[in-house]
Design a protein around this nucleic acid. Sequence first.
DNA 1: GCCAACGTTGGC
DNA 2: GCCAACGTTGGC
Length: 158
Amino acid sequence: MRHWLMKSEPATYSIDDLAKKNVPDMWEGCRNYTVRNFIRDQMSIGDLAFFYHSSCAMPGIVGIMEIVSEAFADPTQFDPKSHYFDPKSPLDNPRWFARNVSLVERWPTPVTLSDLRGEPLLAGMGVLQRGQRLSVMPVTDEEWKLVSQIGQAKSAAV
DNA sequence: GCCAACGTTGGC
DNA sequence: GCCAACGTTGGC
């Protein structure tokens, strides 16, 4: 099993939006080829991912999701009304892929970006690297364990 | 709103 | 295939 970090702007789609569904939801709208390859080729059903809130007052990891489907063509690329519409993506050879995800844990007390930066053992994490902008990226087993512990401890302490 | 970093586009 | 221009990301 692999581990991931997946970013979303909470103003667009937050962990509360996912929690409200009570069923798996589609992780859509990725429009970067590196991210596309992760989603299409590297993820597996059963993989776990951190849900990361970006571009907001308190950026950080707000919970855990599970990948629950194979990759499928992201329908928003074919929808002219969608913000994610891509007129150059051929119907018979889609450029962009999505997966369904389901909520595993929502952390009432997030592990903030500054929490992550404050932990020397996490200095190598992709999300902390200067200039990295991928909205989906792999997380090592060690990083996963440590961040999960921090997240669960912070949220249990409330 | 600023700006650094990076990906994508398109002219050549 | 090069590379400048442009657009986007995302923290601050």
